[in-house]
Amino acid sequence: MKFAYYPGCSSTGTSADYEKSTRAVCRALGVQLEDIPGWNCCGSTPAHAVDTELSAALCARNLDIAARLGAEKLLTPCPSCLSNLRHAAHRMEDPAFRSRVNELLDEPCAETFPQTYSVMQALGDVFDTDLIAQRAGQKLKGLKLAPYYGCLMSRPAEIMRFGDPENPTLMENLLAACGAEVLDFPLKTDCCGASHGIPERSVTARLSGRILQMAQTMNADALVVACPLCQMNLDLRQRQAAKAAGTEFNIPVLYFTQVMGLAFGLSPRELGFEKLCVSPQPLLDKLAAARRTDASDRKVNS
């Protein structure tokens, strides 16, 4: 199975571990990702906050490249990129808007674009959970995980089409198929503070702090995320959030692909674990201990 692939800018820096683990998990499942050549930034929040047509033009260039490749589906790991690409494709259905955007491009873009999906959605669509469960040889038994989608993955509902916009469950299904204990995380679609981390740090610290606090109260071994910006706010900025809340947190924040990769028996190195700021070692130790007990139980029983 082959998909056109848009990695997004953070793939080379802040979320290189998401990128690595996404590719590793896709490889393990026999999914081929073909990078669209010469892709550019989708413009992220700043472009759409400044101008809708500029944002759409930046996205349209990428969608156009994917269309010219003849791709049916374009995947991206990042919900913010996905949101921008989908908004652009949706707005381009209006001919007046399209011609304003075309004016900004080198040449008018393709009439129709491939559909854009998040990697998570594509994996959920293509593989049923039984198949994922079969593939997950190294069950994650004993791990308590808090799934956190962030605000962009499922909203606005008409554009993102990701199940219930305030209670999506796809990640839960994937993690459960990997054998983990999945918490019913009440803040799963709340906002982490998004791109205000630099200019309005206190907003981000407060919102991320709420999420971390809840994960801590629920005794989660880790928060599991699908968004590079959420991951950065919750992991790299975890100490800022703790300071603002007058407490301490020690919660690893893993990408869902890193968790799936562990269940598939891939090594932490192959999944970019060394990039995580809050050490995942306690979680890895717990997993190893659970697996040892399992193995000795099996010996006793046989």
Partner: peptide
């Protein structure tokens, strides 16, 4: 330490950077 930040920019290859410059 975690190499979260690139020390040099990764421009969009294959004419991508220039194309974006023209869009802007």
């Amino acid at each position: 330490a975690k190499r979260k930040l690139d020390l040099i920019p990764h421009g969009a290859p294959d004419g991508g950077a220039e194309a974006v410059g023209r869009i802007v």
